[in-house]
Design a protein around this nucleic acid. Structure first.
Length: 603
DNA sequence: CAAGGTTGCGCG
DNA sequence: AAAGCGCGCAACCTTG
Protein backbone atom coordinates (compact mmCIF):
# COMPACT_ATOMS: atom_id res chain seq x y z
CA UNK A 1 0.00 0.00 0.00
CA UNK A 2 2.83 2.35 0.82
CA UNK A 3 4.45 3.70 -2.29
CA UNK A 4 8.23 3.81 -2.48
CA UNK A 5 9.23 6.62 -0.21
CA UNK A 6 11.36 9.06 -2.07
CA UNK A 7 12.22 12.66 -1.78
CA UNK A 8 10.21 13.45 -4.87
CA UNK A 9 7.03 11.72 -3.76
CA UNK A 10 4.31 14.29 -3.30
CA UNK A 11 2.51 14.38 0.04
CA UNK A 12 -0.45 12.15 0.52
CA UNK A 13 -2.12 14.45 3.02
CA UNK A 14 -1.88 18.13 3.80
CA UNK A 15 -3.12 19.07 7.24
CA UNK A 16 -4.45 22.62 7.36
CA UNK A 17 -5.05 24.67 10.51
CA UNK A 18 -5.01 28.11 11.97
CA UNK A 19 -1.67 29.42 13.22
CA UNK A 20 -0.79 32.39 15.38
CA UNK A 21 -1.67 35.95 14.44
CA UNK A 22 -4.39 35.13 11.99
CA UNK A 23 -2.12 33.09 9.77
CA UNK A 24 -2.66 29.60 8.40
CA UNK A 25 -0.32 26.62 8.53
CA UNK A 26 -0.06 23.58 6.31
CA UNK A 27 1.81 20.39 7.18
CA UNK A 28 2.52 17.79 4.55
CA UNK A 29 2.40 14.13 5.45
CA UNK A 30 3.62 11.18 3.45
CA UNK A 31 1.91 7.85 3.20
CA UNK A 32 3.86 6.40 6.11
CA UNK A 33 2.72 9.22 8.34
CA UNK A 34 5.99 11.10 8.61
CA UNK A 35 5.56 14.83 8.59
CA UNK A 36 7.09 17.10 6.04
CA UNK A 37 7.79 20.72 6.53
CA UNK A 38 5.33 23.14 8.08
CA UNK A 39 4.47 26.09 5.91
CA UNK A 40 2.98 29.19 7.44
CA UNK A 41 0.98 31.43 5.15
CA UNK A 42 -0.99 34.58 5.34
CA UNK A 43 -4.62 33.61 5.33
CA UNK A 44 -5.23 35.21 1.98
CA UNK A 45 -2.44 33.15 0.42
CA UNK A 46 -4.17 29.87 1.19
CA UNK A 47 -6.46 29.70 -1.86
CA UNK A 48 -3.55 30.17 -4.25
CA UNK A 49 -1.46 27.65 -2.32
CA UNK A 50 -4.19 25.04 -2.52
CA UNK A 51 -4.96 25.82 -6.14
CA UNK A 52 -1.33 25.25 -7.03
CA UNK A 53 -1.27 21.84 -5.35
CA UNK A 54 -4.53 20.86 -6.94
CA UNK A 55 -3.54 21.75 -10.47
CA UNK A 56 0.09 20.69 -10.47
CA UNK A 57 -1.21 17.43 -11.91
CA UNK A 58 -4.16 16.92 -14.21
CA UNK A 59 -7.45 17.90 -12.74
CA UNK A 60 -9.49 15.42 -10.68
CA UNK A 61 -8.41 12.11 -12.16
CA UNK A 62 -11.29 9.67 -12.34
CA UNK A 63 -10.65 5.99 -12.05
CA UNK A 64 -12.62 3.01 -11.02
CA UNK A 65 -12.24 2.05 -7.39
CA UNK A 66 -10.87 -1.41 -8.06
CA UNK A 67 -8.41 -0.13 -10.57
CA UNK A 68 -7.31 2.56 -8.15
CA UNK A 69 -6.56 0.04 -5.44
CA UNK A 70 -4.62 -2.17 -7.81
CA UNK A 71 -2.56 0.68 -9.12
CA UNK A 72 -1.85 2.27 -5.74
CA UNK A 73 -1.71 6.01 -5.44
CA UNK A 74 -0.30 8.01 -8.23
CA UNK A 75 2.58 9.78 -6.49
CA UNK A 76 1.86 12.93 -8.43
CA UNK A 77 -1.77 13.14 -7.36
CA UNK A 78 -2.96 16.15 -5.38
CA UNK A 79 -3.05 15.59 -1.62
CA UNK A 80 -6.11 14.96 0.46
CA UNK A 81 -6.69 18.11 2.50
CA UNK A 82 -7.14 17.38 6.17
CA UNK A 83 -9.00 20.06 8.09
CA UNK A 84 -11.17 20.57 11.11
CA UNK A 85 -14.48 21.26 9.52
CA UNK A 86 -15.40 21.73 5.88
CA UNK A 87 -18.03 24.46 6.42
CA UNK A 88 -15.33 26.47 8.16
CA UNK A 89 -12.65 26.21 5.46
CA UNK A 90 -14.27 25.52 2.14
CA UNK A 91 -16.72 28.37 1.43
CA UNK A 92 -13.90 30.89 1.41
CA UNK A 93 -11.89 28.80 -1.01
CA UNK A 94 -14.81 28.44 -3.37
CA UNK A 95 -15.52 32.14 -3.38
CA UNK A 96 -11.89 32.66 -4.21
CA UNK A 97 -12.45 30.37 -7.19
CA UNK A 98 -10.61 27.37 -5.77
CA UNK A 99 -11.94 23.86 -5.61
CA UNK A 100 -10.38 20.87 -3.90
CA UNK A 101 -10.55 17.30 -5.11
CA UNK A 102 -10.53 15.46 -1.81
CA UNK A 103 -10.57 16.21 1.87
CA UNK A 104 -10.68 14.51 5.25
CA UNK A 105 -13.19 16.25 7.49
CA UNK A 106 -11.92 15.65 11.01
CA UNK A 107 -15.18 16.51 12.71
CA UNK A 108 -17.32 14.13 10.64
CA UNK A 109 -14.74 11.35 10.68
CA UNK A 110 -14.35 11.67 14.43
CA UNK A 111 -18.04 10.96 14.91
CA UNK A 112 -17.97 7.89 12.69
CA UNK A 113 -14.78 6.40 14.12
CA UNK A 114 -15.48 6.84 17.80
CA UNK A 115 -18.81 5.07 17.42
CA UNK A 116 -17.91 2.37 14.94
CA UNK A 117 -18.01 -1.22 16.11
CA UNK A 118 -15.46 -1.96 13.40
CA UNK A 119 -12.83 0.08 15.25
CA UNK A 120 -11.06 -1.65 18.12
CA UNK A 121 -9.19 1.22 19.72
CA UNK A 122 -11.58 4.04 20.36
CA UNK A 123 -10.66 5.31 23.83
CA UNK A 124 -8.45 8.12 22.60
CA UNK A 125 -11.17 9.37 20.27
CA UNK A 126 -13.87 9.11 22.90
CA UNK A 127 -11.62 11.10 25.21
CA UNK A 128 -11.14 13.87 22.66
CA UNK A 129 -14.42 15.53 23.53
CA UNK A 130 -13.67 18.82 21.84
CA UNK A 131 -14.26 17.02 18.57
CA UNK A 132 -17.82 16.22 19.55
CA UNK A 133 -18.63 19.91 19.19
CA UNK A 134 -20.67 21.30 16.35
CA UNK A 135 -19.62 22.66 13.02
CA UNK A 136 -18.35 26.18 12.69
CA UNK A 137 -20.75 26.55 9.83
CA UNK A 138 -19.75 29.92 8.66
CA UNK A 139 -21.54 33.15 8.71
CA UNK A 140 -21.20 34.57 5.24
CA UNK A 141 -17.64 35.72 4.70
CA UNK A 142 -17.67 39.43 5.60
CA UNK A 143 -14.93 40.56 3.24
CA UNK A 144 -11.63 39.51 1.77
CA UNK A 145 -9.48 40.77 4.61
CA UNK A 146 -11.36 38.61 7.08
CA UNK A 147 -10.39 35.45 5.27
CA UNK A 148 -9.80 32.81 7.97
CA UNK A 149 -9.01 35.49 10.52
CA UNK A 150 -12.25 35.27 12.35
CA UNK A 151 -11.58 35.81 16.01
CA UNK A 152 -12.83 33.07 18.22
CA UNK A 153 -16.46 34.07 18.54
CA UNK A 154 -18.40 33.93 21.75
CA UNK A 155 -19.76 30.47 22.35
CA UNK A 156 -16.97 28.83 20.41
CA UNK A 157 -16.91 25.97 22.92
CA UNK A 158 -19.69 24.56 20.75
CA UNK A 159 -17.32 24.47 17.85
CA UNK A 160 -14.53 22.06 16.99
CA UNK A 161 -11.00 23.50 17.19
CA UNK A 162 -9.55 24.89 13.99
CA UNK A 163 -5.90 25.31 14.95
CA UNK A 164 -3.13 23.26 13.37
CA UNK A 165 -1.90 21.48 16.50
CA UNK A 166 -5.37 20.21 17.37
CA UNK A 167 -5.86 19.04 13.81
CA UNK A 168 -2.55 17.16 13.78
CA UNK A 169 -3.30 15.47 17.08
CA UNK A 170 -6.78 14.46 16.06
CA UNK A 171 -5.60 13.19 12.70
CA UNK A 172 -3.05 10.99 14.46
CA UNK A 173 -5.76 9.59 16.73
CA UNK A 174 -7.93 8.88 13.72
CA UNK A 175 -5.15 7.19 11.80
CA UNK A 176 -4.43 4.97 14.78
CA UNK A 177 -8.11 4.15 15.15
CA UNK A 178 -8.42 3.30 11.48
CA UNK A 179 -5.35 1.09 11.66
CA UNK A 180 -6.92 -0.80 14.57
CA UNK A 181 -10.09 -1.38 12.61
CA UNK A 182 -11.31 -4.80 11.68
CA UNK A 183 -11.96 -3.64 8.14
CA UNK A 184 -9.89 -0.55 7.30
CA UNK A 185 -10.98 -0.78 3.67
CA UNK A 186 -14.64 -0.27 4.41
CA UNK A 187 -14.24 2.32 7.13
CA UNK A 188 -11.70 4.15 5.02
CA UNK A 189 -14.18 4.23 2.19
CA UNK A 190 -16.84 5.57 4.51
CA UNK A 191 -14.57 8.33 5.79
CA UNK A 192 -13.70 9.32 2.23
CA UNK A 193 -17.34 9.29 1.18
CA UNK A 194 -18.46 11.29 4.19
CA UNK A 195 -15.74 13.86 3.55
CA UNK A 196 -16.64 14.08 -0.13
CA UNK A 197 -20.21 14.70 1.03
CA UNK A 198 -18.98 17.59 3.14
CA UNK A 199 -17.37 19.12 0.06
CA UNK A 200 -20.47 18.58 -2.06
CA UNK A 201 -22.80 20.12 0.49
CA UNK A 202 -20.76 23.32 0.45
CA UNK A 203 -20.40 23.24 -3.32
CA UNK A 204 -24.14 22.85 -3.84
CA UNK A 205 -24.88 25.71 -1.46
CA UNK A 206 -22.30 27.77 -3.29
CA UNK A 207 -23.62 27.06 -6.77
CA UNK A 208 -27.24 27.27 -5.66
CA UNK A 209 -30.32 25.77 -7.23
CA UNK A 210 -31.37 27.80 -10.26
CA UNK A 211 -34.78 29.02 -9.17
CA UNK A 212 -37.45 30.65 -11.31
CA UNK A 213 -39.07 33.12 -8.96
CA UNK A 214 -41.71 34.14 -11.52
CA UNK A 215 -42.80 30.56 -11.99
CA UNK A 216 -42.94 30.07 -8.25
CA UNK A 217 -45.07 33.21 -7.92
CA UNK A 218 -47.34 31.94 -10.70
CA UNK A 219 -47.79 28.62 -8.94
CA UNK A 220 -48.64 30.38 -5.69
CA UNK A 221 -51.01 32.91 -7.25
CA UNK A 222 -52.81 30.23 -9.18
CA UNK A 223 -53.98 28.46 -6.04
CA UNK A 224 -53.83 31.14 -3.36
CA UNK A 225 -54.76 34.25 -5.27
CA UNK A 226 -52.41 37.17 -5.82
CA UNK A 227 -49.79 37.98 -3.23
CA UNK A 228 -51.53 40.08 -0.57
CA UNK A 229 -50.04 43.15 1.08
CA UNK A 230 -47.75 42.19 3.92
CA UNK A 231 -49.14 39.81 6.47
CA UNK A 232 -52.67 39.55 5.10
CA UNK A 233 -54.09 36.19 4.19
CA UNK A 234 -54.47 35.43 0.51
CA UNK A 235 -57.99 35.67 -0.93
CA UNK A 236 -58.40 31.97 -1.55
CA UNK A 237 -57.56 31.09 2.05
CA UNK A 238 -60.10 33.62 3.34
CA UNK A 239 -62.80 32.20 1.06
CA UNK A 240 -62.10 28.64 2.14
CA UNK A 241 -62.10 29.61 5.81
CA UNK A 242 -65.53 31.22 5.38
CA UNK A 243 -66.80 28.14 3.65
CA UNK A 244 -65.60 25.93 6.50
CA UNK A 245 -67.09 28.17 9.20
CA UNK A 246 -70.40 28.21 7.39
CA UNK A 247 -70.48 24.44 7.02
CA UNK A 248 -69.66 24.08 10.70
CA UNK A 249 -72.24 26.68 11.68
CA UNK A 250 -69.52 28.29 13.76
CA UNK A 251 -68.73 31.85 12.63
CA UNK A 252 -65.87 32.21 15.10
CA UNK A 253 -64.13 28.93 14.38
CA UNK A 254 -60.36 29.10 14.30
CA UNK A 255 -58.75 26.96 11.64
CA UNK A 256 -55.16 27.58 12.61
CA UNK A 257 -55.23 26.33 16.17
CA UNK A 258 -55.61 22.55 16.32
CA UNK A 259 -57.15 22.49 19.84
CA UNK A 260 -59.72 25.17 18.96
CA UNK A 261 -60.47 23.60 15.61
CA UNK A 262 -60.92 20.22 17.24
CA UNK A 263 -63.55 21.74 19.56
CA UNK A 264 -65.40 23.33 16.64
CA UNK A 265 -65.37 20.08 14.69
CA UNK A 266 -66.74 18.05 17.57
CA UNK A 267 -69.44 20.63 18.30
CA UNK A 268 -70.48 20.31 14.66
CA UNK A 269 -70.83 16.57 15.16
CA UNK A 270 -67.66 15.48 13.41
CA UNK A 271 -66.30 12.86 15.73
CA UNK A 272 -62.54 13.08 15.37
CA UNK A 273 -59.73 12.61 17.84
CA UNK A 274 -57.38 15.01 16.12
CA UNK A 275 -57.47 17.49 13.30
CA UNK A 276 -55.07 15.62 11.09
CA UNK A 277 -55.74 15.15 7.44
CA UNK A 278 -55.98 11.41 7.27
CA UNK A 279 -58.57 11.33 10.03
CA UNK A 280 -60.70 14.15 8.65
CA UNK A 281 -60.73 12.43 5.29
CA UNK A 282 -62.76 9.60 6.78
CA UNK A 283 -65.74 11.83 7.46
CA UNK A 284 -68.51 12.88 5.09
CA UNK A 285 -69.23 16.38 6.27
CA UNK A 286 -69.51 19.44 4.01
CA UNK A 287 -66.85 21.15 6.09
CA UNK A 288 -64.27 18.48 5.42
CA UNK A 289 -63.37 19.14 1.78
CA UNK A 290 -62.84 22.90 2.16
CA UNK A 291 -60.97 22.33 5.40
CA UNK A 292 -58.55 19.89 3.81
CA UNK A 293 -58.05 22.32 0.97
CA UNK A 294 -57.47 25.10 3.48
CA UNK A 295 -54.85 23.06 5.30
CA UNK A 296 -53.08 22.22 2.07
CA UNK A 297 -52.91 25.82 0.93
CA UNK A 298 -52.08 27.14 4.36
CA UNK A 299 -49.15 24.78 4.52
CA UNK A 300 -47.95 25.90 1.10
CA UNK A 301 -48.18 29.54 2.13
CA UNK A 302 -46.36 29.21 5.43
CA UNK A 303 -43.70 26.72 4.35
CA UNK A 304 -42.94 27.77 0.76
CA UNK A 305 -44.87 30.95 0.12
CA UNK A 306 -43.75 34.42 -0.87
CA UNK A 307 -41.82 35.02 2.34
CA UNK A 308 -39.85 31.83 1.68
CA UNK A 309 -38.89 33.26 -1.69
CA UNK A 310 -37.83 36.52 -0.09
CA UNK A 311 -35.73 34.74 2.46
CA UNK A 312 -34.17 31.95 0.45
CA UNK A 313 -33.92 32.94 -3.20
CA UNK A 314 -31.33 35.53 -4.06
CA UNK A 315 -30.15 36.31 -7.55
CA UNK A 316 -32.16 33.45 -9.04
CA UNK A 317 -30.49 30.92 -6.76
CA UNK A 318 -31.95 28.94 -3.89
CA UNK A 319 -29.16 28.16 -1.44
CA UNK A 320 -30.28 25.70 1.20
CA UNK A 321 -28.02 24.63 4.05
CA UNK A 322 -27.25 20.94 3.88
CA UNK A 323 -25.97 19.10 6.94
CA UNK A 324 -23.97 16.02 5.94
CA UNK A 325 -24.11 13.32 8.56
CA UNK A 326 -26.94 15.22 10.22
CA UNK A 327 -29.06 12.11 10.65
CA UNK A 328 -27.80 9.22 12.85
CA UNK A 329 -28.11 6.83 9.93
CA UNK A 330 -25.72 8.95 7.87
CA UNK A 331 -28.31 10.63 5.78
CA UNK A 332 -27.99 14.33 5.27
CA UNK A 333 -30.18 16.71 7.18
CA UNK A 334 -30.82 20.33 6.33
CA UNK A 335 -30.91 23.41 8.42
CA UNK A 336 -32.62 26.39 6.97
CA UNK A 337 -34.40 26.55 3.68
CA UNK A 338 -36.04 23.17 4.00
CA UNK A 339 -34.14 21.62 1.10
CA UNK A 340 -35.23 18.13 2.02
CA UNK A 341 -38.91 19.00 2.12
CA UNK A 342 -39.47 20.94 -1.07
CA UNK A 343 -43.00 20.05 -2.17
CA UNK A 344 -42.95 18.17 -5.44
CA UNK A 345 -45.48 20.60 -6.82
CA UNK A 346 -42.84 23.31 -6.71
CA UNK A 347 -40.32 21.37 -8.77
CA UNK A 348 -41.16 23.28 -11.98
CA UNK A 349 -39.67 26.34 -10.31
CA UNK A 350 -36.27 24.67 -10.64
CA UNK A 351 -35.28 26.02 -14.01
CA UNK A 352 -31.99 25.92 -15.88
CA UNK A 353 -30.23 29.12 -16.92
CA UNK A 354 -30.41 30.08 -20.62
CA UNK A 355 -28.19 27.73 -22.60
CA UNK A 356 -28.19 25.27 -19.70
CA UNK A 357 -30.34 22.31 -18.78
CA UNK A 358 -31.30 20.25 -15.76
CA UNK A 359 -30.66 16.54 -15.55
CA UNK A 360 -32.71 14.90 -12.81
CA UNK A 361 -32.10 11.33 -11.75
CA UNK A 362 -33.46 9.11 -9.06
CA UNK A 363 -32.85 5.50 -8.09
CA UNK A 364 -35.75 3.10 -8.23
CA UNK A 365 -36.27 1.37 -4.86
CA UNK A 366 -32.83 2.13 -3.51
CA UNK A 367 -33.33 0.73 -0.02
CA UNK A 368 -34.60 -2.76 -0.86
CA UNK A 369 -31.89 -3.10 -3.50
CA UNK A 370 -29.27 -2.16 -0.96
CA UNK A 371 -30.75 -4.70 1.43
CA UNK A 372 -30.58 -7.43 -1.21
CA UNK A 373 -26.97 -6.53 -1.93
CA UNK A 374 -25.75 -6.40 1.65
CA UNK A 375 -27.56 -9.60 2.57
CA UNK A 376 -26.40 -11.32 -0.59
CA UNK A 377 -29.98 -12.40 -1.25
CA UNK A 378 -29.89 -13.77 -4.79
CA UNK A 379 -33.65 -14.19 -5.07
CA UNK A 380 -34.36 -10.63 -4.02
CA UNK A 381 -31.63 -9.32 -6.29
CA UNK A 382 -33.10 -11.27 -9.19
CA UNK A 383 -36.55 -9.78 -8.57
CA UNK A 384 -35.10 -6.34 -9.17
CA UNK A 385 -32.72 -7.05 -12.03
CA UNK A 386 -33.33 -4.70 -14.92
CA UNK A 387 -36.80 -3.73 -13.78
CA UNK A 388 -39.04 -2.33 -11.13
CA UNK A 389 -38.35 -4.36 -8.01
CA UNK A 390 -41.96 -4.33 -6.87
CA UNK A 391 -43.20 -5.63 -10.21
CA UNK A 392 -40.51 -8.27 -10.04
CA UNK A 393 -41.93 -9.44 -6.73
CA UNK A 394 -45.40 -9.63 -8.28
CA UNK A 395 -44.06 -11.64 -11.21
CA UNK A 396 -42.48 -14.08 -8.81
CA UNK A 397 -45.98 -14.75 -7.53
CA UNK A 398 -45.24 -13.65 -3.99
CA UNK A 399 -48.01 -11.06 -3.86
CA UNK A 400 -50.78 -10.08 -6.27
CA UNK A 401 -50.22 -6.40 -6.94
CA UNK A 402 -47.42 -3.88 -7.08
CA UNK A 403 -49.01 -1.94 -4.25
CA UNK A 404 -48.95 -5.04 -2.07
CA UNK A 405 -45.33 -5.64 -2.94
CA UNK A 406 -44.47 -2.12 -1.92
CA UNK A 407 -46.33 -2.34 1.38
CA UNK A 408 -44.68 -5.66 2.14
CA UNK A 409 -41.18 -4.44 1.36
CA UNK A 410 -41.55 -1.23 3.34
CA UNK A 411 -43.08 -3.19 6.18
CA UNK A 412 -40.11 -5.54 6.17
CA UNK A 413 -37.63 -2.69 6.42
CA UNK A 414 -39.61 -0.69 8.97
CA UNK A 415 -40.70 -3.62 11.10
CA UNK A 416 -44.46 -3.44 10.81
CA UNK A 417 -46.42 -6.11 12.56
CA UNK A 418 -50.05 -5.16 12.00
CA UNK A 419 -52.42 -4.32 9.20
CA UNK A 420 -51.90 -5.17 5.53
CA UNK A 421 -48.21 -4.71 5.93
CA UNK A 422 -47.86 -7.11 8.85
CA UNK A 423 -49.93 -9.64 6.95
CA UNK A 424 -47.73 -9.45 3.84
CA UNK A 425 -44.30 -9.47 5.45
CA UNK A 426 -44.34 -13.23 6.22
CA UNK A 427 -44.60 -13.96 2.51
CA UNK A 428 -41.45 -11.99 1.97
CA UNK A 429 -39.78 -13.87 4.79
CA UNK A 430 -40.54 -17.08 2.95
CA UNK A 431 -39.35 -15.90 -0.46
CA UNK A 432 -36.36 -13.82 0.62
CA UNK A 433 -35.15 -15.54 3.78
CA UNK A 434 -31.60 -14.28 3.47
CA UNK A 435 -32.52 -10.61 3.32
CA UNK A 436 -35.16 -10.96 5.98
CA UNK A 437 -32.75 -12.72 8.29
CA UNK A 438 -30.43 -9.74 8.09
CA UNK A 439 -33.05 -7.16 9.11
CA UNK A 440 -34.61 -9.50 11.67
CA UNK A 441 -31.21 -9.96 13.31
CA UNK A 442 -30.68 -6.21 13.39
CA UNK A 443 -34.05 -5.81 15.09
CA UNK A 444 -33.25 -8.47 17.68
CA UNK A 445 -30.01 -6.76 18.46
CA UNK A 446 -31.78 -3.45 19.02
CA UNK A 447 -34.44 -5.00 21.20
CA UNK A 448 -31.66 -6.16 23.49
CA UNK A 449 -30.08 -2.72 23.57
CA UNK A 450 -27.34 -3.66 21.14
CA UNK A 451 -25.49 -1.79 18.43
CA UNK A 452 -25.72 -2.51 14.70
CA UNK A 453 -23.63 -1.30 11.78
CA UNK A 454 -24.06 -0.39 8.17
CA UNK A 455 -22.17 -2.09 5.37
CA UNK A 456 -19.26 0.35 5.59
CA UNK A 457 -19.22 0.45 9.38
CA UNK A 458 -21.31 3.32 10.63
CA UNK A 459 -22.69 2.09 13.95
CA UNK A 460 -25.96 2.94 15.63
CA UNK A 461 -26.04 4.84 18.90
CA UNK A 462 -26.82 2.89 22.04
CA UNK A 463 -30.23 3.38 23.58
CA UNK A 464 -30.32 6.17 26.15
CA UNK A 465 -30.16 5.73 29.91
CA UNK A 466 -33.92 5.98 30.41
CA UNK A 467 -34.42 3.09 27.99
CA UNK A 468 -31.92 0.91 29.82
CA UNK A 469 -33.47 1.69 33.19
CA UNK A 470 -36.89 0.83 31.86
CA UNK A 471 -35.64 -2.54 30.68
CA UNK A 472 -33.80 -3.19 33.93
CA UNK A 473 -36.81 -2.31 36.05
CA UNK A 474 -39.08 -4.65 34.10
CA UNK A 475 -36.99 -7.66 35.02
CA UNK A 476 -36.80 -6.78 38.72
CA UNK A 477 -38.93 -8.79 41.17
CA UNK A 478 -41.31 -5.91 41.94
CA UNK A 479 -42.08 -5.13 38.31
CA UNK A 480 -45.74 -4.65 37.46
CA UNK A 481 -47.28 -5.90 34.28
CA UNK A 482 -47.42 -2.27 33.19
CA UNK A 483 -43.67 -1.99 33.63
CA UNK A 484 -43.24 -5.11 31.56
CA UNK A 485 -45.55 -3.91 28.84
CA UNK A 486 -43.79 -0.56 28.61
CA UNK A 487 -40.41 -2.23 28.51
CA UNK A 488 -41.52 -4.58 25.75
CA UNK A 489 -42.96 -1.72 23.74
CA UNK A 490 -39.86 0.47 23.93
CA UNK A 491 -37.67 -2.54 23.23
CA UNK A 492 -39.62 -3.22 20.05
CA UNK A 493 -39.40 0.46 19.11
CA UNK A 494 -35.65 0.40 19.42
CA UNK A 495 -35.57 -2.83 17.45
CA UNK A 496 -37.44 -1.13 14.61
CA UNK A 497 -34.88 1.65 14.71
CA UNK A 498 -31.88 -0.69 14.43
CA UNK A 499 -33.70 -2.78 11.81
CA UNK A 500 -34.13 0.29 9.66
CA UNK A 501 -30.72 1.72 10.56
CA UNK A 502 -28.69 -0.83 8.64
CA UNK A 503 -30.78 -0.37 5.49
CA UNK A 504 -31.27 3.39 5.56
CA UNK A 505 -27.64 3.87 6.58
CA UNK A 506 -26.23 1.64 3.86
CA UNK A 507 -28.48 3.30 1.29
CA UNK A 508 -27.01 6.62 2.43
CA UNK A 509 -23.53 5.19 1.88
CA UNK A 510 -24.43 4.07 -1.62
CA UNK A 511 -25.81 7.51 -2.37
CA UNK A 512 -22.67 9.22 -1.07
CA UNK A 513 -20.50 6.96 -3.21
CA UNK A 514 -22.73 7.74 -6.20
CA UNK A 515 -22.44 11.47 -5.70
CA UNK A 516 -18.75 11.47 -4.92
CA UNK A 517 -17.99 9.61 -8.12
CA UNK A 518 -20.35 11.79 -10.12
CA UNK A 519 -18.77 14.93 -8.74
CA UNK A 520 -15.39 13.90 -10.08
CA UNK A 521 -16.79 12.89 -13.46
CA UNK A 522 -18.55 16.23 -13.87
CA UNK A 523 -15.47 18.12 -12.78
CA UNK A 524 -13.43 16.35 -15.44
CA UNK A 525 -15.70 17.52 -18.27
CA UNK A 526 -14.31 20.32 -20.41
CA UNK A 527 -16.41 23.48 -20.30
CA UNK A 528 -17.89 24.20 -23.73
CA UNK A 529 -16.65 27.46 -25.18
CA UNK A 530 -19.95 28.60 -26.60
CA UNK A 531 -22.16 28.45 -23.51
CA UNK A 532 -23.02 31.58 -21.59
CA UNK A 533 -21.72 31.27 -18.02
CA UNK A 534 -24.21 30.63 -15.24
CA UNK A 535 -22.92 33.65 -13.41
CA UNK A 536 -24.93 33.30 -10.23
CA UNK A 537 -23.33 29.91 -9.67
CA UNK A 538 -19.98 31.44 -8.77
CA UNK A 539 -16.50 31.32 -10.28
CA UNK A 540 -15.94 27.59 -9.88
CA UNK A 541 -19.18 26.36 -11.40
CA UNK A 542 -20.37 28.99 -13.84
CA UNK A 543 -18.90 27.16 -16.83
CA UNK A 544 -19.08 23.57 -15.72
CA UNK A 545 -21.78 20.98 -15.16
CA UNK A 546 -22.37 20.74 -11.43
CA UNK A 547 -24.59 19.19 -8.81
CA UNK A 548 -27.31 21.48 -7.53
CA UNK A 549 -29.63 19.23 -5.56
CA UNK A 550 -29.50 15.99 -3.59
CA UNK A 551 -32.29 14.27 -1.73
CA UNK A 552 -31.44 10.82 -0.33
CA UNK A 553 -31.81 8.90 -3.60
CA UNK A 554 -32.15 11.60 -6.19
CA UNK A 555 -29.88 14.17 -7.73
CA UNK A 556 -30.18 17.16 -10.04
CA UNK A 557 -27.32 18.41 -12.20
CA UNK A 558 -27.19 21.84 -13.88
CA UNK A 559 -25.24 21.51 -17.10
CA UNK A 560 -24.57 23.36 -20.34
CA UNK A 561 -27.13 22.10 -22.86
CA UNK A 562 -24.57 20.53 -25.12
CA UNK A 563 -23.30 18.43 -22.22
CA UNK A 564 -26.69 17.15 -21.16
CA UNK A 565 -26.23 13.69 -22.64
CA UNK A 566 -22.72 13.40 -21.29
CA UNK A 567 -23.88 14.42 -17.84
CA UNK A 568 -26.74 11.92 -17.96
CA UNK A 569 -24.29 9.21 -18.95
CA UNK A 570 -22.01 10.22 -16.09
CA UNK A 571 -24.90 9.91 -13.65
CA UNK A 572 -25.55 6.35 -14.82
CA UNK A 573 -21.90 5.38 -14.84
CA UNK A 574 -21.50 6.69 -11.32
CA UNK A 575 -24.45 4.64 -10.12
CA UNK A 576 -22.83 1.50 -11.55
CA UNK A 577 -19.51 2.47 -10.05
CA UNK A 578 -21.09 3.01 -6.62
CA UNK A 579 -22.69 -0.43 -6.74
CA UNK A 580 -19.38 -2.07 -7.58
CA UNK A 581 -17.43 -0.02 -5.07
CA UNK A 582 -19.68 -1.07 -2.20
CA UNK A 583 -20.83 -4.51 -3.19
CA UNK A 584 -18.30 -5.75 -5.73
CA UNK A 585 -19.83 -8.30 -8.05
CA UNK A 586 -23.08 -8.80 -6.15
CA UNK A 587 -25.75 -9.27 -8.82
CA UNK A 588 -27.72 -6.20 -7.78
CA UNK A 589 -28.29 -3.33 -10.13
CA UNK A 590 -29.38 0.21 -9.37
CA UNK A 591 -31.54 1.38 -12.26
CA UNK A 592 -32.09 5.10 -12.59
CA UNK A 593 -34.86 7.22 -13.92
CA UNK A 594 -33.08 10.05 -15.73
CA UNK A 595 -34.79 13.10 -17.25
CA UNK A 596 -33.28 15.98 -19.19
CA UNK A 597 -35.34 19.17 -19.32
CA UNK A 598 -35.31 22.89 -18.83
CA UNK A 599 -37.26 22.40 -15.62
CA UNK A 600 -37.31 19.71 -13.00
CA UNK A 601 -40.62 17.92 -13.23
CA UNK A 602 -43.04 16.78 -10.60
CA UNK A 603 -42.70 13.11 -11.32
C1' DC B 1 -41.52 37.42 26.29
C1' DA B 2 -38.16 33.81 25.26
C1' DA B 3 -37.49 28.97 25.45
C1' DG B 4 -39.24 24.61 24.79
C1' DG B 5 -42.86 21.25 23.76
C1' DT B 6 -46.63 19.68 20.65
C1' DT B 7 -49.13 19.28 16.43
C1' DG B 8 -49.40 18.69 11.68
C1' DC B 9 -47.44 18.11 7.24
C1' DG B 10 -43.74 18.40 3.71
C1' DC B 11 -39.79 15.04 1.98
C1' DG B 12 -37.24 10.25 1.36
C1' DA C 1 -54.40 8.27 15.38
C1' DA C 2 -51.33 5.76 11.91
C1' DA C 3 -50.25 0.57 10.81
C1' DG C 4 -44.08 1.19 10.16
C1' DC C 5 -38.29 4.09 9.82
C1' DG C 6 -35.60 8.81 9.34
C1' DC C 7 -35.94 14.01 9.22
C1' DG C 8 -37.16 20.07 9.38
C1' DC C 9 -40.17 23.75 9.84
C1' DA C 10 -44.09 26.92 11.07
C1' DA C 11 -47.51 27.81 14.08
C1' DC C 12 -49.67 27.42 18.36
C1' DC C 13 -49.47 26.95 23.23
C1' DT C 14 -47.53 26.26 27.75
C1' DT C 15 -44.03 27.17 30.98
C1' DG C 16 -40.72 29.79 33.54
Amino acid sequence: MTANPSASESPRWCVVGRAAEGRVAVVEMRAGGERGETMVLDADELPAFIAERESSVREFPVREGAERRAAGRDPSEPPRWVWSDTPFWYPRLLSAGVRVGRCHDLRLCHTILKRSEFVREREALIGAERWDAGSGAAEPVPDESALFEIETPAGAEDEVPHDLESALEEFERQRAALASSRDPGRIGLLLAAESAGALMAIEMASAGVPWDVDEHDRLLSEVLGPRPADGAKPAKLLELAEEVREALGDPGASLDSPPKLLGSLRRAGIDVGSTSRWELAEHEHPAVAPLLRYKKLSRLLTANGWSWIDEWVVDGRYRPVYVPGGVVTGRWASSGGGALQLPRGLRPALRADPGWTLISADVAQLEPRVLAAMAGDQAMAAAGTGKDLYSGIVESGIVATRQEAKIAVLGAMYGSTTGDSGRLVPRLRKSFPVAMRLVDRAAESGEQGGVVSTWLGRSSPEPDQAWKELQARASLPGATSRDEERARRTAREFGRFTRNFIVQGTAAEWALAWLADLRLRLAAMEPPADTAPARASGPVFERRPHLVFFLHDEVIVHAPQRQAEAAAAAIRESADAAGRLLFGDAPVDFPLDVRIAERASKE
